[in-house]
Amino acid sequence: MCKQTQLLNIPPGGGRLNLQLLRPPRQTEKVVVVMGATGTGKSKLSIDLATRFSGEIVNSDKIQVYEGLDIVTNKITEAEQRGVPHHLLGTINPNSNFMAANFTKSASNAIKSISSRKKLPIIVGGSNSYIEALIESENYECCFLWMDISIPVLDSFVSDRVDRMVMAGMVEEVRNIFDFTSDYSRGIKTAIGVPEFDRYFRMEAFLGEESRANLLREVIDEIKSNTRKLARRQLEKIDRLRNVKEWNLHRLDATDVFRKQGREADAAWERLVAGPSFGIVSRFLWNVGPERYRNVTAIRRAAAMEMAMAAVGH
């Protein structure tokens, strides 16, 4: 998981102890990480957390880092951001290849900047490879929140979301960047919703109205299918982080939120997601609130200090 402070190496047989080791360890940045498959409500939770705990958000979605295609990439709107600063959101050249190593460097710089201003860094996104690379290369104290929804409910929501994206202008947005030499292996053109339209834009001028409408429906269905497959791959990676790498993920089941509407959905969000997450983060930051988070790093530091002091006494 996050790098842990190593236990003190006490010399055997009463050897001399390096008293410098008794000094408090360098303070590491505390970060909150919001994870989950696409469409599970990560952005909404991140805004709630940022407004509650004076935080700023570092985007860890490998497609949303690129500039442009705001509908296709489902970027959070300015209104939805509610004044919360966002880093690495729509800032990278869309024709470049922004890899995990690039993200690690940029995100770590953003976290340092946020922490230096006494704000809470909140990492949010569905690209678990980005998150894993960052966490394993930096010495952070981490609180992981995992937004989860049952697969049938998520599948239905994803399909409805694609329909809303089409109504919002997704087809024209992709058309504006289409050319007959498009490379779908790099940059923003790897986004689901871009390569699927290639055959439509190549053929639409040669098709009648009915055939064109049928082909558009096929493309939209393909986008829905590929998005559902993406969600499953994301969940598989989360399972690996939990079960193989033994990351301590706090699961927040938002299934019932997505089954409801209006005030009932809002109430379910507060009860199942916002309320529990506030308690977990409060425990993480200040050691107050429900016993849902144990700071392993702090525990090991305390144990190391006790061992060192005992050795000095002897």
Rank of each mutant, 00 (worst) to 15 (best):
P12W: 14
G14S: 04
L17G: 07
Q20M: 13
L21H: 13
I47S: 00
R52F: 12
R52C: 11
F53R: 04
D61V: 05
V65A: 01
Y66G: 06
T73M: 07
K75W: 04
K75S: 02
E78K: 07
N102A: 08
I114P: 00
I114L: 04
S115D: 09
S115G: 12
R117C: 08
R117A: 14
G125C: 05
S127E: 03
Y130F: 15
I131M: 13
I135L: 10
S137R: 12
I149W: 01
I151P: 05
V153Y: 03
R161N: 11
D163A: 13
D163N: 12
E173P: 04
R175M: 10
D183M: 03
I188V: 04
E204N: 11
F206A: 12
R212F: 11
R212I: 10
A213R: 14
L216K: 12
I223G: 06
K224Q: 10
Q234N: 08
K237Y: 11
D239M: 14
N243R: 00
A254G: 13
V257C: 15
R259D: 05
E264L: 12
E264N: 05
A265H: 00
A267P: 00
A268T: 11
G279D: 05
I280T: 09
W286M: 11
W286S: 09
G289A: 03
E291W: 13
R292E: 13
N295L: 01
N295Y: 08
I299A: 10
A302P: 03
A310K: 14
A311L: 07
G313L: 15
